[in-house]
Design a protein around this nucleic acid. Sequence first.
DNA 1: GGAACAGCCTGACGCAGCGTCAGGGTCAAG
DNA 2: CTTGACCCTGACGCTGCGTCAGGCTGTTCC
Lengths: 250, 250
Amino acid sequence: MNVGEVAALAGVTVRTLHHYDRIGLLSPSGRTSSGYRQYAPADLDRLHQVLLYRELGFPLEEVATLLDDPAADPEAHLRRQHRLLRDRLDRTSAMVAAVEKEMEARSMGIALTPEERFEVFGEHDPAQYDAEVEERWGDTDAYAESKRKTAAYSKEDWVRIKAEQEEIGTRFVRAMQSGAAAESAEAMDVAEAHRQSISRWFYACSPEMHAGLGRMYVEDERFTATYEAMAPGLAQYVSTAVQANAARQG
Amino acid sequence: MNVGEVAALAGVTVRTLHHYDRIGLLSPSGRTSSGYRQYAPADLDRLHQVLLYRELGFPLEEVATLLDDPAADPEAHLRRQHRLLRDRLDRTSAMVAAVEKEMEARSMGIALTPEERFEVFGEHDPAQYDAEVEERWGDTDAYAESKRKTAAYSKEDWVRIKAEQEEIGTRFVRAMQSGAAAESAEAMDVAEAHRQSISRWFYACSPEMHAGLGRMYVEDERFTATYEAMAPGLAQYVSTAVQANAARQG
DNA sequence: GGAACAGCCTGACGCAGCGTCAGGGTCAAG
DNA sequence: CTTGACCCTGACGCTGCGTCAGGCTGTTCC
């Protein structure tokens, strides 16, 4: 097939296909002797995947790495896309509900608080953070469970969760500042409390999974930042304590 | 409120708010003596609207014109957003269905045709054409009816519709090339057939609405183009014939 | 009261993902 | 062999910000 035909079929412009060729995202598998791009069925498959991921908000470069990952078979992509699409459905219906809530409030002459109105926005970043999380946690039950549970939490729940997390944080700080080693029983007990807190609020967190989390605390800036903000060196301390605790439990 | 607070509340960056100020999309209603941006509650309202429209894919410039339209009250925006969000829900669930269909086909070892696979993509352009259509037709019943009916059409239906439209087109061409005036009974009869075709396939098209459509045929390039492609001067001819017919009917 | 640090300001440059010419070959139909 | 539709490769432009740089402001803590 020629570019024009492919473009018409897929609902994109010829220029877009040129662009995808240029950046190496989708190069036609052949050319005629006169230089015309020739797209094979396999190219259409790939284009289809590209468009789906693009629609989901992935930057093209990331789409390329996803599709070029030899470990990811087509079915894995389909499952991922399916999940992301359903997340989007949830988000969109939440927005619909928010608009309806606002319409109702207006018709009754009530004003909503700014917080209520922006609720549905704050911190979404659909294919950014989510994409990373799911790259790490993939289709695991934990991820699904967490999603399911947290969806039902009220504002009060979140306040309590945050308070609990902060309390554990300060316990870590106290342990560290008291001079107790990260592998000490004291520190490990706090780590254990942390694990149980996660299990209670988010998903059944096994010691192994907790150890994985521990590694993340030093590898991932976002986590590092929150702990380092409480006390310098805390991220490493927590990470070590959590892994020591996992070893003890295991 | 300062920029930082607003940014945190709305889940955007400070840079974004600077940008919106610069392009005149959302300027804070005040500044402190030292030049700090001060956002009032009304500014938050506007920001909220901006973010919703942005999420729906509108270019910022269009968002500005929408929000600055003095004829559009807040409720009109809410209704419009509600409709667009629901369109998006439909589209997304169609994509979910498509992915599920493909997963099923794969698990049974069947391959889908390229057309089937791209079906859900072709010609969507969510907030482009749709936005214009609804700007003209707004919340009218006609628009809703058309959406509802066409959603259920099969590929065969569309083929028949297209054939019918083309036949009417050629009848117009013949009338014009035979030398019949656009206001002649002959041309008006074709116009009447056109109106009834629309009523049958899309929505109850009254003569008045048809006259409105007629005006659009010369004002809107997209329509002009399709008719002009059949024969030069045809767009104007059709437009005149349709309006004459409306006058005759009325 | 001053030092430190977070937060604000205004440029200015950069980048992704194409749209849109410009200038020039190619190919099927008549 | 010409015409018109389609293809090619640059190359520049545009949107919607991200990301410094360089410099004021405002609060807090000693």
